[in-house]
């Protein structure tokens, strides 16, 4: 068990290192001189030379990487080329907004999706199951940004009950969160159903029925308990995906989060911002996947046994 956790963590660290090298190398992978990309054509050679020294572009690649990593470990992601503000300060203002949006969306999604998936699995092949499956198949085809546009049209333009954009009051949360939930909920329902069906086929569920337990207590004590493991895992597994959905949603509702920062960073070719955003999102993804694997190993007796059997 401990060996497995150590192995997974070291894999995660390796991943982060590889990602950091890739993100760092982004600037050098670009065709052309980075300074020319950053500056206007009219800028004089002297100023360019100064910038080159400021961004350490005169040093060889590996030395710059070391400097970059050191800076990052001290919380220094460099300065934005466009606004000249430290990227770290921008990040501090924007990351919480994105996290608030995504975590709210995820919680709402799970609270709705898991009971529906559970019921669909329990009443497999009933009318309820078939309707849920057909509707969710349809919703996997609807992109989040169109849902957002339709919601805006309905609730903000036609009915005028909710604000069109911004992120200041709780009412502003409703449409972005709803768009994220609707676009992600279909796959969560389908995943819950598949997993619960697996649990229902387990021998211990059969045993529970065989020893005369009531249907309800089997469902709650045996099936739901295992389904809760699944919910925790699904929560962490979904975080990166919901965040990448939020990148688009933030742009639609002009929410000042990390997604908007990343998009405008790319459009303005503002490298320090893109590097910082991609790197932080990548670390977040690696950490979530790691937590996911470790929770599975700790909570799921079957995996625990198979891991124990290895040593």
């Amino acid at each position: 068990m401990r060996d497995y956790v150590i192995k997974r963590i070291s894999q995660g660290i390796l991943l982060v290192i590889v990602v950091s090298i890739l993100v760092f190398a982004m600037l050098d992978l670009m065709p052309g001189d980075p300074i020319n990309i950053m500056t206007d054509r009219k800028v004089s050679e002297e100023v360019k030379e100064q910038l080159r020294i400021e961004y350490h572009l005169n040093l060889p690649l590996h030395q710059r990487y070391v400097i970059w990593v050191k800076d990052m470990l001290h919380g220094n992601f460099g300065k934005s080329i466009k606004s000249k503000l430290p990227v770290m300060d921008m990040m501090k203002a924007r990351l919480p907004v994105t996290l608030k949006l995504t975590l709210t969306a995820l919680l709402v999604e799970l609270v709705i999706a898991v009971p529906i998936g559970l019921l669909a699995a329990y009443k497999k092949d009933s009318i309820f199951d078939r309707i849920v499956m057909d509707v969710s198949l349809f919703f996997t085809a609807v992109p989040s940004y169109w849902i957002a546009v339709v919601f805006m049209l309905l609730f903000a333009v036609k009915l005028r009950v909710l604000p069109l954009s911004g992120f200041s009051t709780p009412l502003h949360y409703v449409l972005p969160v709803a768009s994220l939930v609707v676009s992600g909920i279909a796959s969560t329902i389908r995943m819950t159903k598949t997993e619960v069906l697996d649990v229902l086929r387990e021998k211990y569920v059969l045993t529970a029925y065989a020893k005369g337990l009531k249907k309800k207590s089997v469902l709650v004590k045996h099936v739901l308990r295992n389904a809760l493991i699944l919910v925790t895992i699904m929560f962490f597994m979904s975080v990166p995906w919901v965040i990448s959905g939020a990148v688009i949603i933030e742009n639609i509702f002009t929410i000042p989060g990390m997604g908007q920062m990343l998009t405008s960073g790319i459009l303005n070719q503002d490298f320090p911002i893109v590097q910082a955003c991609v790197f932080i999102l990548a670390i977040l993804t690696v950490v979530c996947n790691l937590i996911c694997d470790i929770i599975t190993a700790v909570l799921d007796p079957r995996i625990r046994i198979s891991l124990g059997g290895e040593n």
Binding site: L15, P240, S244, L267, V274, T285
Partner: peptide, 22 residues
């Protein structure tokens, strides 16, 4: 493969687009 698999495609492709251009 696992590296590219585990990252959300939108974020990854945004990084690639930064390098290649719009």
């Amino acid at each position: 493969g696992d590296l590219t698999w585990s990252m959300p495609p939108i974020i990854m492709s945004m990084a690639v687009i930064t390098v290649l251009g719009k």
